[in-house]
C-alpha cells in the first residue's frame, strides 16, 4: 500500500512524528486540516459565537458517531463489514476534524485550554484546537444529538442507526452546501458524496436482514425499535440553529423530516419491516443533546475516547 521502501530516508512512522511540529502530540495525526479555508471571515450579520456553536453541533454529531462505529473494529461479523464500518467512521472523523478546526478558529476551544495539564495553554493552530475540543471537553459541553451517543447494540441495530443517521445528515448537509459560511458549504459539499455511500451501505443491509430469515427479520425489527425513540430529536430546532437559519448559514432541522421519511418509506416496506410507534426520548424539559443535556451513554463514549489524552497529555509516539 505504501510507496515508502527500505531505501527511503524516513519511514512512515518517522514522518508522522516529524512532518509537522504538531505531530509530536500523539493524539493528532501529524496533519492539520489546513488553513486555506478554516480562517475564512465570519459572514456579515452572523454572530461569531453562534457560528462556533453550530460548527460544534455538526462536528460532535460526526465525532461521537465515528467513535461509536469504531467500537466495531475487531468485532464486526465479517472482515468486509469491519472495513466498511471503519471506513464510514473515518469519513465522519474527517468531517468532524474540519468542523472542529473551524469552531476552534472562531474561539470555541479557548474555555478548555486550561484543561490541558501540560502547560501548553498558549498553543495555537487548527490542529491544536481540534484536539482540545475533542479531548478536553466534558460531556455537558458536547452538542451532539442523542442518537449518535447511543449504544449500537448488535449489527442489525447498528445498520438501523446508520440508515437513520446517514439519511438525516445527508438531507442536512445537502442543504448546507448553500450556506453563507464558506467552510460549512465546503465541508458539506465533500460530505454529501460520502454520506450517500454510507446510506446506501446501511439501506442494503437493512433490506437484506429485514427481508431475510425469521431470525434476521426479528433482530432487524428490534434494532429499528431500539433506535426509534431518538429520531424525533433530529427534527427539533435549537435557538442557535433558528438564528443561523435566519442569517442564511444553517439548515432548519424541522425541514428534514419529509426527506428522511421518504427514505424510510422506501426502505422499510421493501425490507418487510414495520415503522415503529414508540415515544420519543432524548429531550428533558425541551432540552437535549444540542443543549449539552445527554444520556449517561455519552460519558462512557468519552471515557474511552478521552482517557488516554487526559492521562498522558504530552505523550508522543
Amino acid at each position: 500500500m505504501h510507496s515508502h521502501d527500505e531505501t527511503d530516508d524516513e519511514n512512515v512512522y518517522d514522518a508522522l512524528a516529524t512532518a509537522d511540529d504538531d505531530g509530536r502530540w500523539a493524539f493528532g495525526t501529524g496533519f492539520d486540516a489546513g488553513t486555506a479555508e478554516i480562517d475564512a471571515p465570519v459572514p456579515d450579520g452572523v454572530d461569531r459565537d453562534d457560528l462556533a456553536t453550530y460548527c460544534l453541533m455538526l462536528a460532535d454529531d460526526a465525532l461521537v458517531a465515528s467513535q461509536r462505529l469504531s467500537g466495531w473494529t475487531t468485532k464486526a461479523p465479517e472482515l468486509e463489514e469491519e472495513v466498511a464500518l471503519a471506513n464510514i467512521a473515518l469519513d465522519l472523523l474527517g468531517q468532524a476534524r474540519v468542523l472542529l478546526a473551524r469552531a476552534g478558529h472562531l474561539g470555541a476551544a479557548e474555555p478548555y485550554r486550561g484543561e490541558r495539564s501540560d502547560g501548553k495553554g498558549g498553543c495555537a493552530g487548527p490542529q491544536d484546537d481540534e484536539d482540545v475540543l475533542a479531548y478536553f471537553r466534558d460531556d455537558r459541553a458536547f452538542r451532539n444529538v442523542t442518537l449518535v451517543e447511543t449504544d449500537l447494540g448488535d449489527f442489525a441495530q447498528t445498520v438501523a442507526w446508520l440508515l437513520v443517521l446517514a439519511s438525516w445528515r445527508l438531507a442536512l448537509l445537502r442543504r448546507l452546501t448553500g450556506s453563507r459560511d464558506p467552510v460549512l458549504a465546503a465541508v458539506a459539499g465533500k460530505a454529501v458524496k460520502e454520506l450517500t455511500y454510507h446510506r446506501d451501505y446501511a439501506a442494503q443491509w437493512v433490506l437484506r436482514l429485514g427481508d431475510g430469515t425469521a431470525l434476521s427479520h426479528a433482530r432487524m425489527q428490534a434494532g429499528l425499535e431500539a433506535v426509534w425513540p431518538f429520531v424525533e430529536e433530529l427534527f427539533t430546532a435549537h435557538a442557535v440553529e433558528r438564528r443561523l437559519v435566519d442569517a442564511g448559514v444553517a439548515v432548519d432541522p424541522t425541514e428534514l423530516r419529509w426527506e428522511v421519511d421518504a427514505v424510510l418509506d422506501q426502505v422499510l416496506p421493501a425490507a418487510t419491516l414495520t415503522r415503529p410507534e414508540r415515544p420519543a426520548v432524548g429531550l428533558v424539559g425541551g432540552r437535549g443533546g444540542r443543549d449539552g443535556v445527554h444520556t449517561e451513554a455519552l460519558g462512557l463514549v468519552l471515557a474511552v475516547m478521552q482517557s488516554l489524552a487526559r492521562a498522558h497529555p504530552e505523550a508522543t509516539w
Binding site: 505504501h2 514522518a15 496533519f31 473515518l90 465522519l92 468531517q95 465541508v187 465533500k190 460520502e194
Partner: peptide
C-alpha cells in the same frame, strides 16, 4: 502547493503533504 483530499478523512493526505 494546494491539495484537496479525496475523502474528508483520507489518512493519505498527511503522507501526500510530506512527500
Amino acid at each position: 502547493v494546494t491539495l484537496t483530499p479525496t475523502y474528508s478523512g483520507c489518512p493519505a493526505l498527511d503522507e501526500m503533504r510530506h512527500d
